[in-house]
Design a binder for these strands. Structure first.
Lengths: 347, 347
DNA sequence: CGGCGAGATGTTTACGTCAACATGGGACGG
DNA sequence: CCGTCCCATGTTGACGTAAACATCTCGCCG
């Protein structure tokens, strides 16, 4: 008596498993191994046989079982992405780029969102990722305290970190935050502004810190006074709040904002208080979101290539997975100054 | 002679597999089955034994192998998400919500991005998802031609579609686009505007079509003339282009824009042409992105709850997976009108 | 014309887990 | 004091695949 066959018949109750190689083999009148060979595109199969097997596969609706495959050869052909703040502009763009880079390689992506980027959550994500369900991990966490000493790296799982800190043992890929901030600040200085004010991102963020430090260094290099930093948290609201205070100070003629969203908030504050942009105050953002070109006025900003970041991260991870290559030099991608209408010489 | 043990020793060359239950069993001096029982939290294990096993697990660094588990019991505890335009505001928010809803259930997410929402790509994504690698699929595709007759549904894989079309056999979850558009249009009419103009999303999008139809229906119900539709593609640029033409027509006093990004473009066009908002022209958007509150002027818009969409989609899918429940009524989530400063009575 | 190598195909087995069944010892009731 | 039942634990086997090894069939060369 045949054991429960995987018909697509009515009942529907049973958890049906798809047809296996054995089913195909029976149908095609060959051994399971030959089916395996065909499924994996091995060359040492007679053309006629191959055709027969392929036909049989189609007939029974065969799909390889990835679990069995993974169990057999210890590879999953999938990578995990540990991500905080997913809907964030940069993160979603980067994730998309990672996805795009990974799919042609035949890998799939397992998403591991962490609600908050705490030590425990990240380590937890690692565990949940189970060390066994993926071949490697990309960590895409914006603000964190990932000291390499604290994070528990599970047995030799390849890891790539997208971040500007170079303090990791793992390969690091990121946009060149310092370069971008220097361009932004330099642009304003070049226009003739005496100095440049700064609305910063949250201090837990390495990116934010890098931008702030580079802004400061650029100012110091030019021998300008370094105004106090206005702290923000990336949100438009925080940019607005900082902007309200900035707008009240007539000495302010140029502001470098750590991201475009906060720049939007600043623009609103400037409008509300009647300070003309760029006639009275110049503004430079960071990110170049799609919206920025349509802010009022259109925003001068620093464009980052999230696509390139994602691509390089995948490349590095896949290399680690394939060859066991150790971390090389951190990859730092150049940024680009996009000049629009929010900057002008000082009044 | 022991076979290659999984030490964390130097060489690093070998593709090491983690310790298995057998290793733990040996270490703890019990059978593999007992380890399995402990790993799965079965109650019929002596406390002392349990402790011993847990200690052994810790000592050897045991992690359950999800592939073996999946092979064994035919479940993967993971769901696939087929998604087009990932970095899109609504999509990334919804994806985040899905992730958040799925994790506490012990499921993980496999991302299947499709570059373009064509028939072939989606079916391809299904296949790549391999029917075997996930327990169910959520389809999150913004614009598409998914006729139920054309999409090949693989053997009984549970599916949930996030979309406002009710033409599927699968459960459908979405925000109530018609409701939102009616609120937006109604709000402008209530303010005293003679009629309301509309910048629409791309016609391939069901959401866009729903909003457009509902806007039209609301106008007709109120006995107003229905102005010609200005087509857009969701992008700020398309809103800007449409806005330039709209701004040139002095008869235009109120515009309902199908999303906030295009509304941003419209605002820019209005500013450039010197048409005051809301004094001369009122604008209502759709989505309530985080930025919208800081547009200039702050945008009146329709808030959708992507979180709720994600949550309900997961709920429906999990129900399908657990019980094999068939598609129930489509779930339609209410929207909310958020009044800010871009709307006022006509001049 | 016999032997040998190459290529096609079949057979066996292990990957790690867990359901199902087997075993064995102790508690408790009659 | 014996039988019975329950609970902890052990043993066996199967999930689907593919590597390793075994056969078998040719064709070709000396």
């Amino acid at each position: 008596m045949p054991r429960q066959t995987a018909t697509s018949s009515a009942s529907g109750r049973t958890r049906r498993r798809g047809p296996s190689m054995a089913d195909v083999a029976r149908e095609a009148g060959v051994s399971g191994q030959t089916v395996s060979r065909v499924a994996n595109g091995k060359t040492n199969v007679d053309d006629a046989t191959r055709e027969r097997v392929l036909a049989a596969m189609r007939r029974v609706g065969y799909r390889p079982n990835s679990a069995a495959r993974a169990l057999r050869n210890g590879r999953f052909r999938s990578i995990g992405v540990i991500i905080s703040a997913l809907p964030t502009f940069g993160n979603s763009r980067t994730l998309d780029a990672i996805a795009a880079a990974v799919v042609p390689e035949g890998f799939s992506i397992v998403l591991m969102p962490v609600a908050r980027p705490t030590q425990g959550e990240v380590t937890g994500a690692f565990s949940t990722l189970n060390e066994q369900a993926v071949d490697g991990v990309i960590i895409l966490i914006e603000q964190h305290q990932l000291d390499q000493s604290e994070i528990e790296l599970p047995h030799g799982l390849p890891v790539v970190v997208i971040d500007s800190s170079a303090r990791y043992d793992y390969p690091v890929v990121d946009n060149d935050q310092a370069d971008g901030a220097a361009r932004a600040t330099g642009h304003l200085l070049d226009l003739g502004h005496e100095t440049v004010w700064h609305i910063a991102g949250p201090p837990q963020s390495y990116s934010a810190e890098r931008r702030r430090k580079s802004w400061q260094a650029t100012l110091e290099r030019a021998g300008r006074v370094v105004p106090p930093v206005f702290p923000g948290d990336w949100s438009p609201e925080s940019g607005y709040q900082a902007g309200l205070r900035l707008a009240a100070d007539p000495a302010v003629t140029a502001v470098f904002v750590a991201n475009d969203q906060m720049a939007l908030g600043l623009l609103r504050a400037l409008h509300e208080t009647g300070r003309a942009v760029p006639a009275e105050v110049s503004v430079v953002g960071f990110d170049d979101m799609e919206e920025s070109a349509h802010f009022w006025p259109p925003l001068t900003t620093i464009r980052q290539s999230f696509e390139a970041v994602g691509r390089h991260a995948v490349e590095a991870l896949l290399a680690e997975i394939e060859t066991g290559a150790e971390a090389g030099e951190p990859v730092t991608l150049p940024t680009e100054l996009v000049i629009r209408s929010s900057t002008a010489p000082p009044p």
